[in-house]
């Protein structure tokens, strides 16, 4: 018996997948609304993407091609282990290319390459409740969502400006979905917020908190701001040192103990594809020689 034969397709049993799909459909029908679901124990710790994994498992079909990214990279521990998990339990094809994939599970980034219709982007969400840190009572935040009382969200942004002179929230930046629900877009950098109005389907799974929410394609997603402090998708003022891109989200990497540093695209697939197409950044030559 093959190893994948010992598991039901994509690890979860059919009843569980059915339950998750119902939650996903409800989430898609009410964009931005947090749907409770009976999150299962997964064979990995909370914080490693148990919510995203369950959503991916419920979405996968044998024909799918899966891509898993962690902070934009395909080759980090979290991405590798989840990719292997689905290779073993579902036997689906995997890829590192955004364009070749049909389902992408992500932690903390949206791929630089725009998604097309039919692709699914699954987010791993640690804390689905955007109001949590300012209003700890769950009963109260649920009521605030129900009645669309979102003034408190701006109190957080006010505090940012009062303390730092600008909205310093740089990730998990709250968004308003279709003018109704305020949603935590998971800890993606606010640079990615404008990309959330996309052609693909976006699904959010929070395993520990047992919540699922979703954005259908082309949903209007507006980042909250003040009239005199408009939303600013912040980006490091550098081109990528590997591929020379000037419109991507960059990681800062310290390369020696003398203050040397380089900036590289956090989306490894995008960067690799650009270099394959002949683009070169400041440090690309030395890397190619090595």
């Amino acid at each position: 018996m093959t190893q994948s034969g010992q598991y039901n397709f994509a690890y979860l049993d059919e009843q569980t997948k059915r339950m998750i799909r119902r939650a996903l459909l409800k989430g898609l029908a009410i964009p931005g609304y947090q749907v409770p679901f009976a999150s299962r124990e997964m064979p990995m710790p909370y914080g490693w993407g148990t919510g995203g994994v369950q959503v991916t498992a419920a979405c996968l079909v044998p024909e799918d091609c899966l891509k898993v990214i962690d902070q934009g990279a395909d080759d980090t521990t979290n991405a590798v282990s989840i990719r292997k998990f689905f290779q073993r339990t579902a036997g689906v094809d995997v890829t590192e290319q955004t364009t070749a994939s049909t389902v992408i599970q992500t932690r903390h980034r949206i791929p630089e390459t725009p998604l097309r219709e039919g692709q699914i982007l699954v987010y791993q969400v640690p804390i689905p409740e955007p109001l949590r840190f300012i209003e700890p009572r769950e009963t109260e935040t649920r009521k605030m969502h129900a009645l669309a009382e979102y003034g408190l969200m701006h109190v957080k942004l006010y505090e940012d400006i009062a303390r730092h002179g600008a909205i310093s929230t740089a990730y998990a930046y709250p968004v308003s979905v279709e003018g109704r629900y305020v949603m935590d877009p998971s800890p993606i950098p606010k640079f990615d917020n404008p990309k959330m109005e996309m052609a693909g389907i976006q699904l959010f799974g929070a395993g520990r908190e047992q919540r699922i929410y979703a954005l259908p394609p082309y949903t209007r997603v507006v980042s909250l701001d003040f009239e005199d402090y408009p939303f600013d998708p912040m980006r490091a003022e550098h081109p990528c040192d590997m591929c020379g891109a000037e419109d991507t989200y960059l990681d800062e990497v310290i390369i020696d103990d003398a203050g040397g540093r380089m900036f590289v695209c956090s989306d490894t697939d995008h960067c690799t594809a650009r270099r394959a197409a002949g683009h070169r950044g400041r440090l690309a030559a030395t890397e190619d020689a090595a």
Binding site: I134, E149, G151, L152, H154, V155, Y158, E159, I161, A162, R163, D225, F226, E227, D228, Y229
Partner: peptide, 27 residues
């Protein structure tokens, strides 16, 4: 009061709750 929010934020909360979205005015 919200003890983890500044005095200005505490006073401004009601203004933001009724729809004021101009930081300068609120402050």
């Amino acid at each position: 009061l919200r003890m983890n929010v500044s005095a200005g934020g505490n006073v401004g909360e009601r203004l933001m709750a009724v729809g004021d979205r101009h930081y300068g005015n609120i402050r």
